[in-house]
């Protein structure tokens, strides 16, 4: 067994793009994991066991990245030398910030009981629709090799996914679990 350090897309033998078939990705993941998982080396030497832990970890990280649309987008950007950890002002438009503030205010102002559930559901739909539009825009920018444009959309997606999590926990709070 060799040490794996391929690019995630190559590891799964899929093309470097935003669209992925998640079912076939999951199948491929299990196939690969069946070869490298430490359980396969339960009776092997220490060196082989260590390598198995490393390879299996790398594979888990790769799968975790590719199966999440947001992480996959971030990874695509890093493959194109974009530093996604670093955000500067040129990456965020004023319109975006204002819109985020407004969405957050809408969420914050909802009553703290079950009467808010319908509004939460519609806010969730609204955010999900925006996410879909963003993913489309992201893919278009990648297609046209406009990586800075794609990076701007990526940061917008980060906001939107975070908001989605907050909407869901607001729902949980009101459902009482």
């Amino acid at each position: 067994m060799q040490h794996i350090n391929k690019n995630y897309f190559q590891l799964f033998n899929v093309s470097e793009s935003c669209e992925l078939d998640l079912d076939s990705l999951a199948g491929k993941y299990r196939e690969l994991q069946s070869d490298v998982h430490p359980d396969r080396f339960a009776n092997a030497g220490e060196q082989a066991k260590l390598l198995a832990v490393q390879n299996s970890s790398y594979l888990n990280e790769a799968y975790d990245t590719l199966k999440s649309p947001l992480k996959r987008a971030g990874y695509l950007l890093t493959l194109h030398q974009q530093d996604i950890e670093h955000v500067d002002q040129s990456d965020l438009s004023m319109d975006l910030l204002l819109e985020q503030i407004q969405l957050r205010e809408t969420l914050g102002e909802l009553p703290e009981d079950e009467s808010a559930l319908a509004d939460l559901a519609s806010l969730k739909k609204q955010v999900e629709a925006k996410i879909e539009v963003c993913h489309q825009g992201f893919a278009d920018n990648i297609e046209r090799s406009n990586y800075h444009g794609a990076k701007m959309i990526y940061h917008e997606l980060q906001f939107l996914y975070k908001l989605l999590v907050e909407i869901e926990s607001a729902e949980e709070l009101r459902l009482g679990y």
């Binding site: 490393q54 299996s56 970890s57 888990n60 990280e61 975790d64």
Partner: peptide, 8 residues
């Protein structure tokens, strides 16, 4: 809930 083994 991260699948193990994992290195981060």
């Amino acid at each position: 809930n991260t699948t193990i083994p994992i290195v981060k």
